[in-house]
């Protein structure tokens, strides 16, 4: 998205972020920068702190210290719902489809946080399965359909920074491929995406940069171009 007229705009800047759940100190000083329109992944083993990083950005963990700057505002002390209104869309690891709501109610639930969200028809065109099952109970959908719904409902709100947690986990290859197409389309539309992903083969072709997280710290940052030379080191880090 870089051009002479629109230089890199730093959408999210996290500095020395520490986060706790009760007495457990989970993040030990995370540093990240994400520019508008970038797709960045957080890689790392289970328990490294990837999910906690996303949750800490939204204020969903316990106590936090450090600095989180979103669209130039320091949001570390803000309540969660106000952070969302700066244009953040969150897709949690467990998908978070509400059982007491129908598919359409789930889709329409999150309030608009910015103007310019996708229309319902546009979303149904992107995910035709959801249109067919709009009256079903949300949790009656298959795992893949629930993942589509979890993605679709944050696209409706106008959010332009998407925090996506393990969206391919446990899904069939054909669905993973569909999600890859969706992410490519979103990138072309200029969305900023932070993707937590175990499936490196899924993430590698999509991402502009990768952050490798270990024990609650960023231990490496790899740009797309540098990736081929770093594969061995990365495999050791991720234990794959």
């Amino acid at each position: 998205m870089t051009s002479a007229f629109q230089p890199d705009f730093e959408q999210l800047h996290v500095e020395d972020l520490h986060a706790f759940y009760g007495e457990s100190h989970i993040l030990h000083g995370i540093d990240l920068r994400v520019n508008r329109g970038e797709l960045v992944t957080l890689l790392g083993r289970n328990g490294a702190g990837k999910t906690t990083t996303l949750r800490a950005i939204l204020g969903l963990t316990g106590r936090r210290t450090g600095r989180i700057s979103l669209n130039g505002r320091d949001i570390i002390g803000w309540p969660t719902h106000r952070i969302a209104h700066l244009g953040v869309g969150y897709c949690p690891e467990e998908r978070g489809i509400f059982a007491s709501l129908s598919v359409e109610e789930n889709l329409l639930l999150p309030p608009a946080v910015r103007s310019g969200g996708m229309g319902v028809e546009e979303i149904y065109a992107m995910f035709p399965n959801l249109a067919e099952r709009r009256r079903s109970q949300g949790t009656r959908l298959s795992g893949g359909e629930q993942q589509m719904l979890a993605m679709a409902r944050i696209l409706r709100t106008g959010a332009n920074l998407l925090l996506l947690d393990e969206i391919t986990e446990g899904l069939a290859p054909v669905i993973v491929q569909k999600l890859g197409e969706v992410l490519t389309a979103l990138k072309a539309k200029g969305y900023t995406v932070i993707l937590v992903e175990q499936n490196f083969r899924f993430a590698a072709p999509l991402a502009d940069r990768h952050y490798v997280i270990e024990h609650g710290r960023v231990v490496d940052e790899i740009a797309r171009a540098a990736l081929p030379g770093k594969m061995d080191a990365l495999h050791t880090r991720l234990g794959v």
């Binding site: 939204l58 969903l60 309540p79 969660t80 719902h81 969302a84 209104h85 969150y90 949690p92 978070g96 509400f98 059982a99 007491s100 709501l101 109610e105 329409l108 639930l109 999150p110 309030p111 946080v113 944050i154 709100t157």
Partner: peptide, 20 residues
Amino acid sequence: AYLRAGTENPRLLQAFGVNV
């Protein structure tokens, strides 16, 4: 729908921008 969603998972509802 807000009430039902909040009953199920208030933290996620708040992450969507609702003043829970």
